[in-house]
Nucleic acid binder design. Structure first.
Length: 411
RNA sequence: GGACGGGUGGGUGAGUGGCUAAAACCAGCAGACUGUAAAUCUGCCGCUCCUUGCGGGCUACGGAGGUUCGAAUCCUCCCCCGUCCA
C-alpha cells in the first residue's frame, strides 16, 4: 500500500476541485495531499449518507461523483451508511422534525442504496461502513461526555434552527444531537476529508471541531453545490417531484433531462458529468455564438448521463426515441402495452384511462378529454362519453397528454 | 404549572353563522406557440354518478361531541405547536 503512485499535488487539486462549492480550509487540503504524496499513504475521504429513502436520484450523485474523483486519484473512498443516524433524522434543510425511521426501513433502504451507489463508485476500492457499528453501542455516559464538547449557542447559530425559532416552529431536542453523533463517525473513521452538500456545511464543521476535541488533526470540509431540480428553482428532491431517479428507465431519464432549462444545463454539466471545466466553458461559448444549437448540447448531456447508468446502447436508443416522439411527433415504437380481454359491448374511455394509463381519478380523466389531451390512433377525442368497442379483437394507440402513449390490445 | 397566540385544500394564506368545494398567490396538469427548454397566452386544478347540466350525490377547514333550519365560523372537552412567566 505504501508504494502508491500519486499524481502531482497540483494536478490532483485541479481535478478534485471541479464543481466544488467550498473547501474549508483549502490550504489544509493541499497540505494533506502533499503529506500523502510524501508518505505514500492515501487520504481517507468519506461521504456519509442516511438511507432515508429507498432510491437515490441525480442530486445525490453530485457528492458521490466527488468521492469518486478522490478515488480516481488513488485515495481511499469511504462510503458511510448512516443506518443509526437515519433513525435520528438530519435537521438540515427541513422545516419540521422528521418522523424517525424504523430499523427495518433503514436496513431495506441501505441495501438498495449500495447497489445504486456502485454505478458511480468502484466497488472493489470502496470501504463501506455503517455508523450503527459505533453509535449503536455508545453509553449514555459517552453521549453526555460528547455533548460536553459543544456549546448550545453555537448549535443555535445554524440557519435551520434559527429560522425555525424565528417562525415559531418546533425543534426537538434530539435534533441538536445529530451533528454531534455523526461527528463520532468522523472520529472513528479518522477521516482526512469529508464530502457533503453545501447544506451540510454546519454538520461538517462540527465534525471537524469534535475530531480535534478527540485528538485528531481535523478533517477538511469539502462541500458541493446543491443540484437544482427539473423545475429550475428548488433543490432536487423526491418530495418536490422535480427529480431524476437513477434507476429510472433510459427513455424517462433522457426526457426529463431534456426538459430542464438551457441555463440549468450548465450546472448539470458541471455537477453530473466528468467533463473537465474548460470543455464545458467551450460548449457554452459555442451555444452562445450560435454555432451549436442548445438542444444539441442538451441532448449530449442527456446522452452522457443516461450512459452512466444504463450504458452506451440504451443511451443511444433513448436519444433516438426522443427524436422520434418529440421532434418528429410520432408515437414511440415501443409504447407501453396493455392487454384487455375481449368481451361483448363497450367500455367507457374514461374508465380505460384510469385502468391503463395511470390516471388517478375519473375527474382527472374527464378533464384531460375535455382539454383535448386524449387521442386514439392520432384522432383527438373530445367527448367524455366516448366508448371503446371491446367486442372484437384489435389494437389501438392511446395517447394522454404529451408523454403518455399506450398500445391497447383487445384479445 | 400560569397567561397569551395559533392549527384552513400539495404549499403560503384569506375567510368569524347561509351568497363557501372554500378568495388570492405558488406549485401541478392540459391546450396554443416551440427546441417536450424558457417566456407568453388560454383553460383546468376534492371525489363520484349519470340524462355531461351554470346537473345530482358525497367528502373537506387538528379530533370528538353539542347549539342551530343552516357551522371552517358559536359552545364544551381533548390533541398538537409556539411565545412569555416560573
Amino acid at each position: 500500500m505504501s508504494d502508491h503512485k500519486f499524481k502531482p499535488v497540483a494536478e490532483q487539486l485541479a481535478y478534485v476541485r471541479k464543481g466544488a462549492a467550498e473547501i474549508i480550509p483549502e490550504d489544509e487540503l493541499k497540505q494533506k495531499l502533499e503529506n500523502s504524496a510524501k508518505t505514500g499513504k492515501p487520504l481517507r475521504v468519506y461521504l456519509g449518507v442516511d438511507p432515508t429513502a429507498p432510491d437515490i436520484h441525480l442530486g445525490h450523485t453530485v457528492v458521490l461523483r466527488k468521492l469518486k474523483h478522490f478515488q480516481d486519484m488513488g485515495h481511499t473512498a469511504v462510503f458511510l451508511i448512516g443506518d443509526f443516524s437515519a433513525m435520528i433524522g438530519d435537521p438540515t434543510g427541513v422545516s419540521e422534525t422528521r418522523p424517525p425511521l424504523s430499523r427495518e426501513q433503514v436496513d431495506a433502504n441501505a441495501k438498495t442504496y449500495l447497489a445504486q451507489v456502485y454505478k458511480i463508485l468502484d466497488r472493489d476500492k470502496t470501504e463501506v461502513r455503517y455508523n450503527s457499528e459505533w453509535l449503536g453501542t455508545m453509553s449514555s455516559y459517552d453521549v453526555v461526555r460528547l455533548c460536553g464538547h459543544y456549546r448550545l449557542a453555537r448549535m443555535l447559530e445554524r440557519e435551520d434552527f434559527r429560522s425555525r425559532l424565528d417562525k415559531n416552529l418546533p425543534i426537538a431536542v434530539h435534533e441538536l444531537l445529530y451533528p454531534l453523533l455523526t461527528a463520532i463517525d468522523a472520529v472513528k473513521l479518522e477521516s482526512d476529508v469529508e464530502i457533503g452538500a453545501t447544506e451540510q456545511k454546519f454538520n461538517l464543521l462540527v465534525h471537524r471541531d469534535i475530531q480535534r476535541e478527540y485528538g485528531l488533526s481535523g478533517e477538511v470540509a469539502f462541500t458541493m453545490p446543491i443540484l437544482v431540480g427539473l423545475d429550475g428553482e428548488r433543490k432536487m428532491s423526491k418530495s418536490l417531484g422535480n427529480y431524476v431517479g437513477i434507476t429510472e428507465a433510459p427513455g424517462e431519464m433522457f426526457g426529463k433531462i431534456m426538459s430542464i432549462s438551457d441555463e440549468l444545463m450548465w450546472s448539470y454539466y458541471e455537477l453530473l458529468t466528468d467533463f473537465p471545466s474548460p470543455a464545458i466553458v467551450r460548449l457554452r461559448e459555442d451555444v452562445r455564438s450560435g454555432s451549436l444549437h442548445p438542444m444539441e448540447a442538451k441532448m449530449q448531456l442527456a446522452h452522457v448521463i443516461v450512459r452512466d447508468f444504463h450504458g452506451e446502447e440504451a443511451a443511444t436508443q433513448a436519444k433516438e426515441q426522443f427524436q422520434r416522439v418529440f421532434r418528429d411527433r410520432q408515437a414511440p415504437d415501443n409504447p407501453t402495452q396493455f392487454r384487455l380481454q375481449q368481451k361483448p359491448g363497450t367500455e367507457k374511455l374514461v374508465k380505460l384511462l384510469i385502468q391503463c394509463a395511470d390516471i388517478p381519478s375519473r375527474s382527472e380523466a374527464e378533464r384531460l378529454i375535455k382539454q383535448g389531451a386524449v387521442e386514439i390512433d392520432g384522432q383527438r377525442v373530445n367527448d367524455v362519453r366516448h366508448e371503446i368497442d371491446l367486442s372484437k379483437p384489435g389494437e389501438l394507440l392511446l395517447r394522454a397528454g404529451k408523454k403518455k402513449f399506450l398500445r391497447l390490445t383487445i384479445e
